[in-house]
Amino acid sequence: MSIAAVLLLAVALGTDSFSLCLGIGLAGVRRAQVYLISFTVLLFHIFMPLLGWYAGEYVGSLLGRWAGYIGATVLLYLGVKMIREGLHPPEDTPRPASLHTAGLLLLAASVSMDALSVGFTLGTQRVNLLATVLTFGIVAGLMTYLGLVLGKLLGRLAGARAQLLGGLILLGIGIKLVV
């Protein structure tokens, strides 16, 4: 597999994280949250393909199906909550998004499920596994960071409607995962 193909695959894997984090960023995030979320997604995009590589097809198909539903449910919940808060804002300025440890891990796992599946196919290709998964992680981490920062900037420009827009984005992604 060429370097260009690995980079294209890494960008494709990072698009879920970018779009999801764009929605989260619209709700408002603190600088520390941007770094924490980006780093967590980076780690998951390294370890999920490794897990896929070593776990085998059976475990991946079993986890992938249920993890997809769980991830979609979390996104739907977050989307509805953000829409509700966007329609009835508790204050004039957007609040920073609240992601606790469990939510952060679910977020990172939900956007990294594709990387788990890709890990299964890496074994059939002639790739440097370590370089490939590091590339996946770095690209996903950067795309997560860009999504959060861009969402935060757009949130400031959109004002109170940013929460509503972010919720709609998350709701749409969650529905797409279920359908």
Rank of each mutant, 00 (worst) to 15 (best):
L104P: 04
A131F: 10
S2M: 05
L148Q: 02
S98D: 14
K176N: 13
S110Y: 08
G79C: 12
G151P: 09
L129K: 09
T93A: 14
A162S: 14
G155Q: 01
A27I: 02
L150W: 07
S98K: 14
K81I: 04
N128R: 12
V127G: 06
G155L: 07
L122Y: 00
I173P: 00
L107G: 00
G166Y: 03
H88R: 14
L142Q: 03
M48S: 07
T73W: 06
T124Y: 15
V74A: 12
D114Y: 01
G155Y: 02
L106S: 09
A55F: 11
A12D: 10
I37W: 06
A102K: 10
A115W: 00
E57M: 10
P94E: 05
L130I: 13
S117C: 15
L7S: 09
I70W: 01
L104T: 10
G28K: 03
G123C: 03
G159E: 02
T124I: 11
L42D: 03
S61P: 00
L116Q: 01
A140S: 14
G25L: 07
D92N: 13
L78I: 08
A140W: 01
P94N: 09
L168A: 15
L43C: 12
L105Q: 11
S19M: 10
S112D: 01
I169M: 13
Q163K: 12
K152S: 14
G23D: 10
G172H: 07
V74Q: 08
H100E: 15
A108I: 06
T101F: 15
Y35T: 04
L99E: 01
G14Q: 04
L42P: 03
A102F: 13
L42Y: 04
L146Q: 00
S117H: 14
Y58W: 15
I173A: 07
G123H: 05
P94V: 13
I173K: 02
G28R: 02
I70E: 03
F39G: 10
A115E: 00
V111I: 09
F39R: 07
S112I: 03
L130M: 12
S38G: 11
E91F: 07
L122I: 05
R65H: 09
L51K: 02
R156M: 13
W53M: 11
G174Y: 02
F120Q: 07
L107N: 01
G60C: 08
G60Y: 00
A131P: 00
Y35N: 00
S38I: 06
R65A: 11
G166I: 02
A158G: 04
G14V: 05
A72D: 03
H45G: 03
L107W: 00
A115N: 01
A10L: 05
I46G: 00
R65K: 10
V11I: 15
L170N: 01
S110L: 11
S2Q: 13
L148R: 02
G28F: 05
L62S: 12
G137Q: 01
L36K: 15
V178M: 13
L129D: 07
L177K: 11
